[in-house]
Amino acid sequence: MLKLIGASLVIFAGTFIGMQLGSYLAHRPLQIRQLRAGLTLLETEIVYGSRPLLEALASISRRLTGDVARLFARAAELSAEEPDLAASECWHQAVQYVWRDTAMKEPEKEILLQLGSVLGQSDREDQQKHLKLALANLEHEEMNARDNQRRYEKMCRSLGVLSGILIVILLY
């Protein structure tokens, strides 16, 4: 009886790990899509709304959800707390702070850091060009993430269950 309970727990643990890995793969395209929506809103706020960057970031953070909203909120907080800090530095610190909690990978981080290096340092048209470039790069990364999700999500979940079964077979 004890062996059966132990075997069930091992299989459950393997299944849980597989489900978590599959969930991670499913969250990445979603978060990239949310990030693209946030940058589109930022472009609208900068180009058409003529709002200061601090207000635009705070407004966008209220419209979004999850880790992406935290990114915009953190950048707005840093900008409000330390007015001497450049917008690019606030953005960089916000990306570093929020990134460990996201499912996104290094290419998306590099895109955001490149965008942050020019954020708030030029006129509206130049800002719009940089935002469009970042959006195009993120669109490419989203396609890659969706492709990886299709390719590997089901495999991760199946491997989780099968690895749990394999461990049970090897132990008993």
Rank of each mutant, 00 (worst) to 15 (best):
K3V: 05
I5P: 02
G6M: 14
L9E: 04
L9V: 11
L9K: 13
V10G: 02
V10L: 08
F12S: 11
A13L: 15
T15H: 02
T15S: 15
G18Y: 04
M19W: 15
M19Q: 15
Q20S: 09
Q20D: 11
Q20F: 11
L21E: 14
G22E: 08
S23Y: 15
S23N: 15
L25F: 14
L25M: 13
L25W: 11
P29V: 05
L30Y: 15
L30F: 14
Q31F: 12
I32Y: 03
I32Q: 01
R33Y: 01
Q34I: 09
L35S: 05
A37T: 09
G38H: 06
G38M: 04
T40P: 00
T40C: 01
L41H: 05
L42I: 04
E43Q: 08
E43V: 00
E43N: 04
E45Q: 03
Y48T: 04
Y48F: 13
G49S: 04
S50A: 02
R51G: 00
P52S: 11
P52T: 07
P52R: 08
P52W: 10
L53E: 01
L54Y: 10
A56L: 00
A58W: 03
A58Q: 05
R62G: 08
L64E: 02
D67A: 13
D67W: 15
L71Y: 09
L71G: 10
F72P: 04
F72Y: 07
F72T: 09
F72W: 10
A73C: 09
R74Q: 11
E77Y: 14
S79W: 06
A80V: 12
D84Q: 13
D84K: 12
L85V: 04
A86D: 05
A86H: 10
A87Y: 05
A87P: 12
A87D: 10
A87N: 08
C90A: 10
C90H: 07
Q93P: 03
V95P: 12
W99K: 09
T102D: 06
A103D: 05
K105R: 13
K105I: 03
K105H: 06
E106Y: 02
P107T: 07
P107C: 10
E108C: 09
K109E: 14
E110V: 14
E110G: 00
E110D: 00
I111L: 04
I111E: 02
G116S: 05
V118C: 09
L119E: 04
L119N: 03
G120S: 03
G120I: 05
S122W: 12
S122F: 07
D123V: 02
D123W: 05
D123H: 13
D123F: 02
D123I: 07
R124A: 07
E125C: 07
Q127V: 04
K129M: 15
L131G: 00
L133Y: 06
A134V: 07
A134R: 11
A134H: 07
A134F: 09
H140P: 00
E141H: 02
N144A: 09
A145W: 04
R150N: 02
Y152G: 10
E153A: 11
K154S: 14
K154R: 12
K154L: 13
S158A: 08
S158E: 06
G160K: 13
V161K: 14
V161Q: 08
V161I: 15
L162F: 14
L162Y: 09
L162N: 07
L162W: 06
V168A: 01
I169R: 05
I169N: 01
L171I: 15
Y172E: 04
